[in-house]
Amino acid sequence: MTRKRILTMMLSLLMLTQAFPALTLAEATQAPAATEQAAPEATEATTEETTTETAEKTAESPAEAAEAPAYDNPFLKMEILDMNEQPFDVSQLAGKPLMLNFWASWCGPCVMEMPDLNELSEEYKDKMLIVGVMSSAANFTQDGGIAVDQKELEGARALYESKGITYPSLIPNDLMLAIMYQIPVQSIPTTLFIDENGYLIHSVIGSRDKASWASLMDQVLAVIEENPTPQPGGQPTDNPGA
């Protein structure tokens, strides 16, 4: 072998060997790659489990139809923290439809629309409440607890301060995380419109300008007016107003 070939082989092996320390160091410090997609990774449910669950539910429902638990507005009963990790008073949400905006500090479109949402929250404050949910600020841990991402909170607070945002943004609790898994909230911003009885009326993905939001909010308010849902404590229904 020529000297050049030996050196080439050695150099490539040197590069190769640098790769492994980097890989293992990354693993040791648990540095996952963040992405523009929504934060929670859906744990893959096995088909057997979901089929069994559905079968159980169907078996129970005819017998329990008369005693089926009434649907209650979960948003008025939840415990949730705001971005300063203080308890958020959920009684503020009573009596008005809710516009839940899932966002994150690293999401360009989310941050772009925040000033418009801020203005709309003022203009519509008697008709609809705008509340943000910092979708990557918390996630489930392996043992079913919830871990809060302090870096994301810092970023969110910095954004709020620099842009003068006043509508509240909340750290996901288990209800919010469950909603994110169920919909699922895959891309952000995702915005859910929920009426005053806790029924989901509409969901949209993506940011939009102020006029577009206002038009959509007006449509949702009109639909809510025309399709009243049962008060909390009534029977659950699949299609309100149908």
């Binding site: 979960p74 209800l175 909603i179 169920q182 029924y199 989901l200 699949d238 299609n239 107003g241």
Partner: peptide, 8 residues
Amino acid sequence: ILQGTTAL
């Protein structure tokens, strides 16, 4: 978790 539909 959520009741409702978007088909309104």
